[in-house]
Write a protein that binds this DNA or RNA. Structure first.
Lengths: 338, 338
DNA sequence: CTGTTAGCGCTTTCAC
DNA sequence: GTGAAAGCGCTAACAG
């Protein structure tokens, strides 16, 4: 056994100080009702004096269960929308005393694979994963572990365990159709990096389907490089390229890009929404701050997290939980479109 | 022992399948060089077949050490600025294979106390805490545990262990003085909830000190209610009240509020920055999107997280790490001030 | 109400 | 290069 400088008193020390055995201390902590009041008092005093903090690792090992933790893997904490999901999840878990362990995958699926394995090693009681596409190995690991898993932010008929999300394809389709309904004819589409982002891919599919249904021209599709997290400047930078396609509207897969594009359009003296309509995705706070305010798809980030949390908790308690929960998105019309 | 539905294969099953003892499997995982190549191959095959994922709880218990995790406690993931700190911390930890466990305190110190105890129970290798004021009990617990602790986002001469931050007092002082230098005379100050937010309190002190030094009038100080996380609308809502003090500039302790105030001022036909200068704090993305763009204090959130991570890692390895790291802030002049 | 006996799944000696 | 014994800190089950 390796020597560590760390210095945690163990239960045995508390027990000795209180003049009882460890078993009584253990009970005092987990079912105080079964311990005599004065013994309890002595034990509490001893805990206070020693600064004892139970070793949850040992406890979990012994009790054969996890330490009341749920693991969530999101692409990045930078994106406010995933932050919302975390907040929703937190809100669901807190009342039940569960803790949240967070991992950032940086939108990289290899990183996700590595994190799932690493976190599985800690035997969490449940998992929240972003998206529904992942390596077979990871799916397999999670299935075998037989731990509640919620995949989020998209829908699928073949979840590992449960899904809570919305259809990105339908959302993009609906926004495209909505833009067409406002009279836009040449609708361009600008996506974030789609290599490891199925949500971006699905949105593109929805956009294409809408164009086809409506008989609108298919413009060149643009993809923004691959920074870890989207930046406002990226949207500004790509605008000139997109304008070469002579669009009368541009649909961005993130508000962040759309805001950058609005700013750049203004700098270039292009009238938004008259000459050029601009739409985003996510409905971030920034969407109402930019001028003109951004038309966008409101996406239920917080609700996804909350429902996912409730579902995981239900599964843990052996209660039934839906395999698929579809949460509605909504198109929010503002001033960046006619 | 409680029966769980979970279904993790143990090392013993892998060992049996590979025709060796658990000890050899353990070695294959931790020091493969000490195991014969063909044995190693059989073991890996067995791991693959069983879907074995080591139980880090047991491993840590046995090895007497933690499972390579660092715990970070921040007020909220909603605030982009703390998200930056998390990103910086992540970046520092990842190369060394450390994992990040995140807790949200919701700006409540009782919650922080509870979380410190709960996380300490999991025996992390280090802690990142936001702010430098906390209960004696928590300080004591952390000191006794003798685990690397970095307090952040403020400076102090009496850290539990280490501090990485900047002086909120000086930052607010400097911004106030800067505003005065631009010709503003009646500078109002609007703070977020300060009850459990020492950073807000220190900023207020800095503001007051600057006024006194400059001989400027002390206006009434405004405090925005207590939502979990700041909202743009809060800044808009408080503007009328503040205007009653006839300020020629308003300094908000968060960009979020400042942006709301700019929007509200525009709605009311007040010219920013001519009639009213507005300044914020944090330098969020939103600061460059609002019109006029917001003058603010740029705060080194990401650097704080990164340096904190490096310091914790250094301490773990027994290398020296500075007790205090002061990271510079900067005043960013934009168009919301003359 | 409290103590005793096992044992969670793994790693650390120390043998062979 | 591999194994056997012991134990990490705690809790379940059964006594008493």
């Amino acid at each position: 056994m390796m020597k560590r400088e760390k210095n945690f008193p163990r239960m045995a020390e508390v027990a000795k100080l209180a003049g009882v055995t460890v078993m009584t201390v253990s009970r005092a902590l987990r079912s105080p009702a079964k311990v005599a009041p004065d013994t309890l008092a002595r034990i509490h005093a001893a805990i206070e004096r020693t600064g004892y903090v139970p070793n949850a690792l040992a406890g979990a090992l012994s009790a054969g269960g996890g330490g009341k933790t749920i693991t969530a893997l999101i692409p990045t904490v930078q994106h406010a929308i995933f932050a919302d999901t975390i907040t929703g999840l937190s809100a669901a878990l807190r009342p039940e005393g569960y803790h949240l362990v967070l991992g950032e995958t940086g939108y990289r699926s290899e990183e996700e694979d590595a994190l799932v394995a690493a976190f599985l090693a800690r035997r969490p009681e449940g998992f929240l994963l972003t998206g529904v596409t992942r390596s077979l190995r990871t799916r397999d690991l999670l299935k075998r572990a037989n731990v509640p898993v919620v995949e989020t932010w998209e829908l699928t008929n073949t979840p590992i365990d449960m899904v809570v999300g919305y259809s990105n394809e339908k959302a993009a389709h609906d926004m495209t159709a909505w833009l067409a309904g406002r009279g836009y004819q040449r609708i361009a589409f600008v996506s974030g990096p789609s290599r490891n982002n199925e949500r971006a891919r699905r949105r593109e599919i929805g956009y294409r389907r809408a164009l086809k249904e409506l008989g609108l021209p298919a413009l060149k599709i643009f993809t923004i490089g691959a920074p870890a997290a989207p930046q406002v400047e990226d949207g500004a930078a790509i605008l000139p390229e997109v304008l070469a396609e002579k669009p009368d509207a541009i649909f961005f897969t993130s508000d962040i890009y759309a805001v950058g594009a609005i700013q750049e359009a203004k700098r270039r003296g292009i009238a938004v929404p008259k000459e050029l309509g601009i739409a985003g995705f996510h409905d971030l706070a920034i969407a109402t701050v930019v001028e003109p305010a951004l038309t966008t798809v409101h996406v239920p980030g917080r609700e996804i997290g909350y429902i996912a949390g409730r579902n995981i908790l239900a599964r843990i308690k052996g209660e039934p939980a839906p395999q698929l929960s579809a949460i509605p998105f909504a198109i929010v019309a503002r001033d960046s479109t006619k």
